[in-house]
Design a protein around this nucleic acid. Structure first.
Lengths: 216, 216
DNA sequence: TAGATTGTTAATCGATTAACAATC
DNA sequence: TAGATTGTTAATCGATTAACAATC
């Protein structure tokens, strides 16, 4: 464990949802927003919101709350969303296409500049304005651009191979939506998303007879 | 807090990923699988796997590990995936279409029997074999069938209204992929998925200079 | 048998919640 | 001013990890 963890991952995971609330307040022209208000909007405790915000370094004002603009900037800065990132997407199936069509990434500092697949029916095409190349072209395209991450949306049985192509091409971060663990060199980051874990939680809660809290 | 939580949600979230590994072992004809093997495949600690499995009630055999078939059955039973559920999907955009096309739900006991949207270009159509109706028809279709849950994949600003249509139609569980919190009666379960929270984590880890662990 | 693995109890760690003085 | 809110320290809670006897 080289570097001690300073900020809990639970906190980091909540910050984007705060941003939704705070940006909505900004749109309505509000200058300040209190932890209490954010907490109510998200069904959280205000103390948790205050603690989480503390890690961004943004200071609030008693009675008023936190300055909306500074707060937005502070969260963006803390998350690294103020620095632009370039990414590619590998696997242009249903989910891959959906992510290419999601407009929110650009706002969060992520540009998906190219997509890759091995299916001849997809290669050469265009999905939501992003060109689809054959996976074999990944090294060449990586050489042209300085890429920060790859979004991995291939079927489970193709995940390991695709991850190797990605790391061989020099990309050092993978956002993995494939339904499989991938094994990569130690200097490559992998963030795995597992949709079925949320469904497991819902299913258990349904069977258990319905607690009322809005669960995470 | 009416009913004490017996099993941690972290445990429940991990069970589906165990299932992937165990089912793969089953396909290869293995009769037993040890906690150590599962842990290695998922980059976890074996003690964590053993503890998690304990809650399903499946007992293992020293030296051999856990019986694969019982383990699969035990996890399905614990998650409630052995009992069939019928659901609808509301919001046939990019993500909604992707989820309708995802084959894994049926195996996990979830049938999506109808989809809804308000866009005339989508209504009347067919997405991955699922009929798209106008949202106004939701009450009528719910009356015909006994529906367990709704998958919510509408834009953020339509989420609250759609959630109300869903609850008014008598559905008591919502799997919410919309980028917004929805407020529902206390007897309705909401499970929110927030894709940007995973991206926040990855982004911070990238900025922090690359810890090697495969993060959740 | 020897040794790997389970299952359980105890210890540690991290995250949430409570309490409250400081502030405007 | 009175009172809502911040920011911080302490207490609680839950989840992970360690330790180890029991088992085959």
């Amino acid at each position: 464990v080289a570097s001690r963890r300073l900020v809990g991952r639970a906190t980091i995971r909540r910050l984007p949802s705060y941003l939704n609330v705070i940006e909505a307040a900004h749109q309505e022209g509000q200058e300040y927003i209190s932890g209490t208000v954010i907490a109510e909007a998200l069904a959280l405790e205000s103390i948790q919101v205050r603690k989480d915000i503390a890690i961004t370094g943004v200071v609030g004002r008693p009675r008023l709350g936190f300055p909306v603009v500074s707060l937005i900037e502070g969260i963006y800065r803390f998350l690294g969303w103020d620095r632009n990132k370039q990414g590619v997407l590998v696997g242009v199936g249903n989910l891959g296409s959906a992510l290419l069509g999601y407009g929110g990434f650009a706002q969060r500092g992520l540009s998906l500049v190219a997509a890759f697949d091995v299916d001849p029916k997809r290669v050469g095409g265009d999905v939501h304005g992003v060109r689809v190349h054959h996976l074999d072209e990944l090294p060449a395209i990586c050489a042209e651009r300085d890429l920060d991450l790859a979004v991995l949306t291939v079927p489970a049985d193709a995940a390991q191979e695709a991850a190797e192509a990605i790391t061989d091409a020099g990309i050092r971060a993978i956002w993995n939506f494939a339904n499989a663990q991938v094994h990569v060199p130690a200097n490559v980051l992998v963030q795995r998303e597992d949709l079925s874990s949320g469904y497991a939680l819902l299913s258990v809660r349904m069977g258990a007879g319905g607690l009322a809290d809005e669960g995470r």
